[in-house]
Design a protein around this nucleic acid. Structure first.
Lengths: 241, 241
DNA sequence: GCAAAAGTGTTATACGTACACCCATGA
DNA sequence: TCATGGGTGTACGTATAACACTTTTGC
């Protein structure tokens, strides 16, 4: 007999930095330490529903559109209270402002991922490991899915989208080539016809995230090249033993 | 309080077909039906160790080098006996021959994945869903990791490796281009100097799987292009709700 | 007009694809 | 010497990267 919990790694790009939503623990163990929002799964509750509920209850933030199971953490000694298995979820949100709603949400706030990853001891339980796995998953998915759009509000400019990639990978992208790439990627973006105003320079067009994929022709995948990892061999660390 | 189990999706390429290792259930529920090997996690046992143990006990097959957590399945009604959460693992093996060892292994055998996916009702519990997820993960990982080598024995020819891709994706690859691609991919393969014999035609060189990645220069990832999914938008189904 | 950001055009290069061709072996 | 599969050379099309250039706004 085990306790089963869920933990939510809710990531965003905020103030030009990659950030994660954390709560301060109000009781033992790890009282006063930062932790991922999460808690026990109820007996008739689906795992993903539990994750959404805990996020809402502990931080006052309604779960965003993108919520995906990350992995399950079950080392026998991971919780001093007893054998606990935790199913971690990855949530991707646009910048939602301060986290100030919710009942237990007093201590919920955003924190920079880079600082948390530099020092494992800042987080309770094995949450530093979970965070590191979540970051790796999110960075990876930017490469081959339209995940970046989920870091943006419903309507956004190409430059905002570009800044997501630039922040997550800490590099500069050529605005011209980036613009062409994303606007030409089939099904990736939808024009709204509107344009942003207020900033300096020529106003940018506003776009919306493209179709969910279901309503697209799903172009024949190009498996011809076999996708051997040429540039960076073995980059996506598989768990070999 | 939940029961926690592990299930193992052990995949291989065998007789020119993509196959999975299954057992026949010896008791209720789903008595007599095919199921993934698996069982209850012990109280002081790590999840992955449990998976390896169950694979060995139920099929007589020692877990291969590649074992990776797949996902966790926890719908409230997935097991008629009570609330059970199952952590599924993906294992990739070379063709290991018949499954005939182990105590409970009498009923363990390899089955064609394509047939199982055509009819959900062939497998016990939600194992058809787990299998489908495993297949998607394995196909996906072929694209950007050296996973294909794990479907081959320790030493293999380029043609054997090519047949893995051809079987998994059901297509024909140009042997010439494939050869160049994998032999030039840095760190992907290591020459053994030996060559295969026995077959018709010019004997092929034998290769071994390349470094684990840790001992490689880990070439600068080429994030320049941002990896928008051009050819096939939104192919890797993210769990949007 | 000037600065700044959006967006387009142009070109060199790299990579994938197709396919002709040579190599090494068994029968 | 012929058939078969292993392996190399080469030409061509397409995608990317770099960067010059035009457009549209606020000041």
């Amino acid at each position: 007999m085990f306790s089963v919990t869920v933990d939510v790694v809710c990531l965003t790009v905020r103030d030009g930095a990659f950030q994660v939503l954390l709560v301060e623990r109000g009781g033992p163990p790890f009282e006063g330490r930062l932790a991922l929002p999460g808690g026990f799964v109820q007996v008739d509750e689906n795992l993903e529903d539990a994750a959404r509920r805990e996020l809402r209850e502990e931080t006052g933030i309604e779960a965003p559109r993108f919520v995906e199971q990350l992995a399950t953490y079950g080392e026998p000694d991971r919780d001093p209270r007893g054998r606990t298995v935790s199913v971690a979820f990855l949530a991707i949100a646009a910048d939602l402002g301060e986290a100030t709603g919710g009942s237990d949400a007093a201590a919920a706030d955003w924190h920079r991922v880079d600082e948390l990853l530099r020092d494992d001891s800042l987080l309770a339980f094995d949450h530093a490991v979970i965070l590191a796995d979540a970051v790796e998953r999110a960075r990876g998915k930017l490469e081959y899915t339209p995940l970046a759009c989920d870091f943006c509000p419903a309507e956004f400019t190409i430059a905002e989208l570009r800044r997501v990639y630039e922040t997550m990978w800490d590099l500069r992208l050529d605005p011209a080539n980036f613009h062409r790439k994303v606007t030409r990627a089939d099904g990736f973006l939808v024009e709204t016809g509107k344009s942003a105003d207020g900033g300096v320079g020529r106003p940018a067009q506003l776009y919306r995230r493209g179709g969910s994929g279901a309503d697209l022709p799903a172009a024949e995948p190009r498996y011809d090249g076999v996708g051997v990892p040429l540039g960076s061999p073995c980059r996506h660390g598989a768990s070999y033993s």
